[in-house]
Design a protein around this nucleic acid. Structure first.
Lengths: 129, 129, 129, 129
DNA sequence: GTGGTCTAGACCACT
DNA sequence: GTGGTCTAGACCACC
């Protein structure tokens, strides 16, 4: 799985890392139970600070995406990621709302917006088919 | 138009303000050409620093949502907001992608996701009908 | 002579007014000795504040473009505008320098820059021919 | 690279700073990819507030002159500055026009004006030869 | 009265 | 240590 960071983005690097790993899981490139590189090796591979990788891993663990065993190392949660709960959906709506509001202002129709979402969905589901 | 800020949020206050105003425009509560409160009055209304409001206004100006008119003060861009260009859509996709990836991991179906988007769209378009 | 103001520009209105009048003189639309509208009439014509017009006139007077007679009103300096002195040229260079520096960074060749200047010169000299 | 500010000038300090840095780039004193001092260090070097430096940097970033890199700090855009587009040229003309108009009024010939521009150009290109 | 600029000092997130 | 954010108070230019 390829990690692709933008050091000039406003999005913090650890956050980008979190997203990329989640995308990898969504794309089924890394399956539940499968291992991830250690903090050290990933950090030196990408050329970033240990702390940064660690912070990303901690957040992924916090959100139930991965488990961190002292010995077995880092693995994708073998039970699968916790399903969306009411809280997650509230958060999701809160994140979508400003995107949709701006799209409306900029004359993006609902159809076009939904089509874009579908297209993005396909980029993940196509990978598993 | 009501402004509703969460001072506990990680999202910077000026950013929340930007979003809220964009939502106000999307909801057609503030029409093109209409005026917005002055930096100072809005700041004292909300109980924040005028620089924070100013930063929000500057960003909105930069993005073409508002104009700062020498005589009329701050007004919503009477020509309407610049339409979505390729750049905006690329940005939008970049913002949607991680949300969708996480949703997939959490077993949110495409149908459900799109339905959520539609629901949010209605909260804006319903307001203008 | 037409006055064309941009109320959304960062350039102060009085400054725009000064420029427009200087351009009118350069274009020989208003000849030395000829009269300009009174502060009051010009202000109400354009729909701006008296102070603003007054400030523009004061600056033009200061720079030797116009004379303000208590009775005869405002006239373009019949002796013509004071010729460029060393001081003016120093100022001119100071104004041109950042424009040229940025042009160089943006890959505008000297030829192209000079051509643009010539084109602008023509818009004035053409008017007098 | 030397920064030379005039605290008496009407031109805002941050603006002067922007100009000086652009001139440094034009003069090839700072090459693409090269680093600029941090906000704090530059501010204390010049003896101004860090916010003022920050404002200058933000504008330079906005205009594509510099990048704010998560790891390397502030660097001159390694891809070079965005080339002049139609918009920039329109702006440039708008800036040149009043300078030329006043020069005409003050009896500066087109030849002399162009010669002055050439002289300024040389101060930049001579530096790289 | 408005927005624009500058200063100053503080806290935080990120690397 | 870096940049980003927020606050606060001051002065100025403009209208």
């Amino acid at each position: 799985m390829l990690i692709n960071l933008d050091f000039e983005s406003n999005e913090p690097i650890y956050q980008q890392l979190v997203h990329q790993i989640i995308e990898g899981i969504a794309r089924k490139e890394i399956a539940p139970g499968e291992g991830l590189p250690s903090v050290r090796s990933l950090a030196s591979d990408i050329g970033i600070n240990l702390h940064t990788v660690n912070k990303a891993y901690q957040q992924l663990k916090q959100d139930g995406f991965i488990l961190i065993h002292r010995q077995k190392g880092v693995v994708v949660n073998p039970d699968g990621v916790p399903k969306a709960d009411a809280n997650y959906k509230k958060q999701l709506e809160k994140n979508l709302r400003p995107l949709i509001a701006e799209s409306i202002c900029r004359d993006v129709s609902e159809e076009e917006f939904l089509r874009l979402c579908s297209t993005i969905f396909e980029t993940y589901q196509g990978g598993s088919a």
